[in-house]
């Protein structure tokens, strides 16, 4: 463990907590893409199949459980409890366009052709594009509540910090994982225009407005 990876995990945890708090306190999931949340739940489910078979540390196991619980709690809040506030009309990204290519690629490019490893690889590829429905929704509505933009900033920062972690691990212990690293770069690049808007607008107290 290093501070970059710990920082990334905490940024990820912060993002998940911000989202749950936003939905719970405003009792609304307006502006949030349920489809992205489905992809995140799918990502954690496919990635943490080794929760009971591969014990790394208490921290690792606890965080996996927290991520899984939070992902499904968010789905429950969005599709059951506050279903009436879910914005179907703007959350129209076709999930099969993301799930099928990720699954296909995971079968072709992986570290080992075993169930657990292919599922891990699938989760890595899926996570890289899981935010697309959310970014698509923000571009369709043309704006995002500031709490939603804080959520996106924390979520984008998490994988950016993981990239720093991979560079650090390469130089400090010779560890590298090209699949996770390249997917992480793609994932972070997808946030770039959002990061620009967040830093130039939201941090100056303006609302996140996308150029129409």
């Amino acid at each position: 463990m290093n501070i970059f990876r710990l920082g990334g995990d905490l940024a990820h945890l912060l993002a998940i907590i911000i989202l749950l708090l936003k939905i719970w306190t405003t009792r609304s999931c307006a502006g949030i893409s349920g489809k992205s949340q489905i992809l995140f739940a799918l990502t954690f489910t496919a990635r943490y199949l080794d929760l009971f078979t591969n014990f790394v540390s208490v921290y690792n196991s606890v965080m996996k459980v927290v991520y899984l619980a939070a992902a499904y709690a968010t789905l429950y809040l969005m599709y059951v409890k506050f279903k009436a506030t879910y914005d179907h009309n703007h959350d129209t990204f076709r999930l099969e366009f993301l799930i099928l290519p990720a699954a296909g690629l995971a079968l072709i490019i992986n570290h080992e052709f075993s169930i657990i490893e292919v599922m891990w690889t699938f989760s890595i590829y899926l996570e890289a594009v899981a935010i697309l429905p959310q970014l698509f929704m923000v571009s369709k509505t043309g704006e995002a509540e500031s709490i939603t933009s804080h959520y996106l900033f924390a979520l984008g920062s998490y994988r950016a910090l993981y990239i720093v972690n991979w560079v650090y691990r390469y130089y400090s212990e010779g560890f590298y994982d090209m699949i996770a690293t390249l997917a992480g770069v793609v994932q972070t690049v997808l946030y770039c225009d959002f990061f620009y808007l967040y830093i130039t607008k939201v941090l100056k107290g303006k609302k996140l407005q996308l150029p129409a």
Partner: peptide
């Protein structure tokens, strides 16, 4: 790359 048995990252 040397592969850890399983993955140690979240």
């Amino acid at each position: 790359c040397h592969r850890l048995l399983g993955h140690d990252e979240l």
